[in-house]
């Protein structure tokens, strides 16, 4: 997963729900020094009884926000969604020659 262009990650999930797996795996995909490099990661753990769906909010460097409902997605689909915009940004960066 391309995480270079993420500036802000907000994850909300209930660990006791089986549908929270993609949310937790997404967190484990963030590289070890991303937080030190300025990515903001906010994790909100819901109580055990809550039925709220797990959600993921991502902000990119160009200001685009993406809100994903993780309840019906697998981790590969989440990665696809995030990477789609990241690849666009990567190509733009390459063309401008930075």
């Amino acid at each position: 997963m391309i995480t270079r262009f993420l500036t802000d990650v907000r994850v909300k999930f209930n660990p006791f729900s089986p549908r929270s797996k993609p949310a937790r795996l997404f967190l484990s995909l963030i590289p070890p020094n991303a937080r030190a490099d300025g990515m903001k990661v906010e994790t909100q753990m819901l109580p055990r009884t809550s039925k709220e769906p797990s959600t993921l909010g991502v902000k990119f460097k160009d200001g685009k926000e993406m809100n994903l409902d993780l309840d019906k997605m697998r981790i590969t689909e989440v990665m696809e969604e995030v990477d789609r915009h990241s690849r666009l940004l990567a190509r733009k960066e390459e063309l401008t020659g930075n």
């Binding site: 660990p15 967190l27 753990m45 109580p47």
Partner: peptide, 23 residues
């Protein structure tokens, strides 16, 4: 501090019973 940011308490198992973070 950077290590603790990456640790998340998920729950606990106390004498066979399962507790969430609040518990």
């Amino acid at each position: 501090q950077s290590g603790l940011q990456k640790l998340m308490l998920l729950g606990a198992r106390v004498e066979g019973k399962v507790f969430d973070t609040e518990g």
